[in-house]
Amino acid sequence: MKKLILTASLLAIAAGAASAQDVVRMGTEGAYPPYNFINDQGEIAGFERDLGDEMCARAQLTCEWVINDWDSIIPNLTSGNYDTIIAGMSITEEREAIVDFTQAYYPPASSLFMGMSEDFTLAGAVVAAQTNTIQAGYIAASGATLMEFATPDETVAAVRNGEADAVFADSDYLLPIANEDADLMIVGEPVQLGGGVGMALREGDARREAFDAAITSMKADGTLNALILQWFGPDAATF
């Protein structure tokens, strides 16, 4: 279940050694549409795929995509299994302590509860969330009963089968699901969490500046906003 067991070693932390790398391995989850997912052709697709390819092109880096389970996605970065995480990861203080983030490429999004019935109160409820997400941390601190799953899909399935009263996740992930499934609806109040979504690199990795510059230039010429609107719909928050 965990790919980190395959390779457990750390790449040189020194910036000099890092810049000698000619291939950048981009780690993503591949199970969080529309951020990133495996499409019907069996390729990694989604907002972050398009964004990442564009960033690599602008930073003049050769990039390669790697899939890794969410719950081990940070340990595998620090141990050098790949060089970046671009997987809808919100920028938080706890994560900042372990990895370096680029500037946000997606503005702070609200998190929503999705359930099967309108009468939902957080206190005393059983809420499903994905392991190691800011949403899971929020539920654990709130006093509600947290049910953790390894993949986002399983959290939604837990609500459908009644195991959990609601699922708590990014609005961009939940809204398309709620819109298409008559049984599921958004319940409760939206919650603002995190400081936007950024790309994570190992601490001290010099390529962070290159990616940061690429995001800045994409923000400046409007390509980033165009991508956001393309993948998240016309109502999405832009820069």
């Binding site: 390779t7 790449l11 790697v66």
Partner: peptide
Amino acid sequence: NFLVCPEARTPSSNAPQWVHEVYG
């Protein structure tokens, strides 16, 4: 962390993805 020098990383981080998969 389990830290070895870059030369000892297996497979080398420059290796293409299929090498990583075959190694695994």
